[in-house]
Design a protein around this nucleic acid. Structure first.
Lengths: 225, 225, 225, 225
DNA sequence: GATGAATGAGCATTCATTCAT
DNA sequence: AATGAATGAATGCTCATTCAT
């Protein structure tokens, strides 16, 4: 199990070096076409034909850059993750100073901003979470675990700081947190497409507040009220 | 002429009458094959070829029973819904008497029991919620709205009963509730497949309790502790 | 060659006696359905499925009445021919007395009236003339020859009477005559469908006169004018 | 970006560029197979399977050349039209000088010669005129009108020249002319297939003369004779 | 490195015909 | 005599992948 790395060593680079040697303009065209296709279709529905057509490259070239469509999917997904990191990073850097629920709110906000600036990347990412576990495992390759770990750490620190109820199950809470995050982004994307009430992103963030209120305080009526 | 109108009056049934005229054993075989296929594949991935092969019927026969694969999908989904209702009904009948959070818990439990007894049906139902909105609309035909309405009513009554914090946004909470329910079932199915710690369903229900604890009390540390 | 009748003797009746034993209402329903289908579709496009559906009979029954769709086609075509005869008969009975070109005109008129009263039968008949020679031979079984013979006789008598130019080739003229007749009916059916200028059939007959004028006098400018 | 627009500008060609890039021998094989199939079958009866089998190409290749069978049909029909033009052109170039009935005769002769040299193309063309109006419109796309216009112009000029009886209805006469032309070619093809009396095309042209005699002088007995 | 033609297994769907009841 | 379920060959079409140039 520790020797997973063994099989990795022998793998060819994906995408191939050829792809990275491409003039940037062309490489970008391919990436853009792939993003469009993966944002519009599920992994299995996505078609190489559409991508190469929109990118304006030949069928043969595609296979010189990627061994199959999964390679491309992985690559795009990783790129998207890096892009998202830019939005998350600010929050992470302040994780120790701030109150846990403030951090949560900021994380949600970061997610919304990312979705606002890069709707297709956000869509694509959300789509992946709906894929079959087998697809997810192949494409994300353990990255999902990392996400959970991140949220678990956040909650653990929250307990230590005295913000979070130590009675909660951290594993479960982290899953809940991630699920809600996805739902929030999905909801945002749906609404922004139909463009009602979304002239300003701030308005939408208020909706998010309501959801976070529930996450923070629960649904139960407070006795002291 | 009277005859003609007779046959005309009969609405085109889906599946066809032919299907219902089949000997039960054969009909069941087809249903089982369809459930297997839809539990393993997304709507678009599911293939008629696999279904007829497993069911042991001819290509032509399939089309004498169903006008296309969507018909079959719809039929299976409705059947699944009816089956699930059996599990839900008990809870619904006691909805007025019980505390809202107890009801929620019972609803989650019912979902788990359904998933335990009919894992493939549960899987298939969960899969549908991950399909594209267009697929969902075609197959569910507004049933999704009904689900949300059900939860909204539950919460509204909860507020009236004094169980639920009137400050929460009901729409958002109901979505959260449904999303979590799906996540719970998905989690159960995943774990029960890998069969660790799930020798008894009761053990798993304790996990659910933890999730519901969060939903009820939130993540925030209680000051009065 | 004279013994064609030999192979005929051993043939089973088409349609079967069973068909003729049917209650008239049902038999008519089948005939009507067949006419509709054959008026809308070419021989090869016509589908048994549509006919039995519209007629409200079972698949099995169809094959108890007709050995295949060709049988039905033949039967319908013959019936149509008999119906048309009703319109032609008047003219034929006066063939000896009248001027040949008057007869021609009356024949065209009879064709138009038949098409007006039974548009579907006329359509179906015209369609048959557009079918492949192989289809035509199978379905009409020499009836086409009879038509030509009829026109040839008419022209021959016309020559004898002194109406028709004895210099014309009768065989060719009869073909021309039949072709034009088909064109006239087709034109009528097309126009009556789009229903302009066809409130009265008389208006249309004037158009026919123009065509017959050409047939009678030719296109050449008359010197004595 | 300039690249992208480049590929976009290129209209989608039918057949595709791929088809035209093919080695001539292969392209010819496909064309020949298509002509055979369309000469033997109606538009709806014609099958891709037969064409690719005879042409010796794969199913997939077919769809790389043509988007569907209609594309191929159109292409073959246009090619056939161009080929026919070669035969017509001589006559057209002399249209002003010659007597109208001489032109007609030459046009008929050109049609026969075309049918003699390219019997399958002629057959296929004739077949198309028998197709449903919907098929004709899709494939010919208004070309039919042009044919009628051509004949109408011929007749109009004939009247002006003093050749043609100004009393005739040009529209009707042009239709008659086209219909007869089709009948003549059809007749020729039928006879040449059964190969009696057609050892020399000249013999057949005499038959045509007889038909044109009728078209010119009409069927009526000339009084001045 | 780039190309794009070739491939064939795969898909859903239709249909005339048979045959046991 | 009537039924209608079963069949499977045939249809058009898509697609990821290979490979010679």
């Amino acid at each position: 199990m520790t020797r997973l790395s063994h099989s990795r060593e022998r793998m060819e680079k994906v995408p191939t070096q050829t792809f990275f040697n491409l003039p940037e303009e062309k490489r970008e065209r391919i990436i853009r076409a792939a993003i469009d296709e993966f944002a519009d279709n599920s992994f299995h529905q996505a078609s190489i034909a559409k991508i190469i057509e929109q990118a304006g490259i030949s069928r043969g070239s595609f296979y010189q850059y990627f061994s199959d469509i999964k390679d491309l999917y992985k690559f795009i997904f990783e790129k998207s993750g890096q892009e998202k990191m830019v939005y998350i990073y600010d929050v992470v850097s302040k994780m120790n100073e701030l109150n846990t629920f403030v951090i949560m709110k900021e994380l949600y906000k970061a997610g919304i901003r990312f979705a606002n600036d890069h709707p297709k990347l956000a869509l694509l990412g959300n789509k992946l979470y709906k894929e079959d576990i087998s697809v997810r495992n192949e494409v994300m390759a353990g990255l999902e675990e990392k996400s959970y770990q991140f949220y678990e750490d956040l909650l653990q620190k929250g307990i230590e700081k005295g913000d979070v109820d130590p009675g909660v199950d951290i594993t479960i809470a982290s899953r809940l947190f991630l699920t809600m995050n996805l739902a929030v982004v999905e909801n945002f994307l749906t609404n922004s497409k139909h463009d009602h009430f979304l002239d300003d992103i701030e308005g939408y963030l208020q909706e998010v507040d309501k959801m976070l209120y529930i996450l923070e305080h629960g649904l139960k009526k407070k006795d002291y009220e």
